[in-house]
Design a protein around this nucleic acid. Structure first.
Lengths: 127, 127
DNA sequence: ATTTAAGTTTACGTTAACGTCAACGTAAAT
DNA sequence: ATTTACGTTGACGTTAACGTAAACTTAAAT
């Protein structure tokens, strides 16, 4: 078993991801994180670390915290019966479709940028 | 010259893009659109149409209206000197880099979804 | 002539995602 | 023993991106 028992404090994570501790606590209050406690203090595991990474990646793609929370819950091994598993697979598929749509949008945007760069360069020539 | 003189009303556009007229007026108030007028009434050109398409594409990628506005202004042929042109080219490059970053994020997300689907399918077998 | 339908401006309301104090606890360093 | 650094829980503030409602105009249809 490879058990990584690294532990992060809240300011550790804040520094590593360049966010504020307020943000991290907010994510917890929204049900996206659930760190251990040592008394009052929060202790974050490698799992929390990757969850945070997932959240921020989602943000860069315009996903809401609610959507990221769904993803996170989906990744949590809390299911047991076939119906539950089936639902997870459907959610996975939905996420994939959304990502695919975003891929298309990016492609179109890139093409438009290419076109426009050409136009600008041509206009520069005539000067 | 191929001059397309189609004209859209505000509710035309609202229907076609499945948004509200309020949204369209809001975008105008934020400087993203500037339709012609016939008295009080707004008249939208094919150019406005594509601008709206750009805005909504941006939204699906998590771009703010301010960012889309920059893109739109960039696409507007209002520059004349070399320095201005150069700035536009820099902006184009920045946009491309952001899109490239988003592409990477999507790829990672897709891989994670693939992995998780495998895990779920394996768990289903054991039932 | 007057409904009806679509449009307009103005203004206040709402939600998500935090920011910004304030007031306090705790543990290590001087 | 008391700074100093880091943490905690409220609680109110802020911004972006619209929603919603009111009060009014205008053109077309009955």
């Amino acid at each position: 078993m490879t058990k990584n028992d690294t532990i992060y404090t809240i300011s550790d994570l804040a520094q590593r991801f360049d966010i504020t501790t307020r943000t991290i606590r907010f994510y917890e209050s929204e049900g996206l994180l659930s760190p251990e406690r040592a008394g009052q203090k929060r202790l974050y595991s490698p799992r929390d670390y990757t969850t945070l990474k997932l959240i921020l990646r989602g943000k860069r793609l315009g996903w809401s915290l609610a959507e990221s929370r769904e993803l996170i819950q989906m990744y949590n091994p809390a299911q047991n019966n076939q119906a539950q598993y089936q639902k997870v697979l459907e959610r996975v598929q939905e996420s994939r479709e959304r990502l695919q749509h975003q891929l298309n949008d990016i492609e179109v945007m890139m093409l438009e940028l290419d076109e426009h760069e050409d136009q600008v360069r041509q206009a520069m020539q005539k000067t």
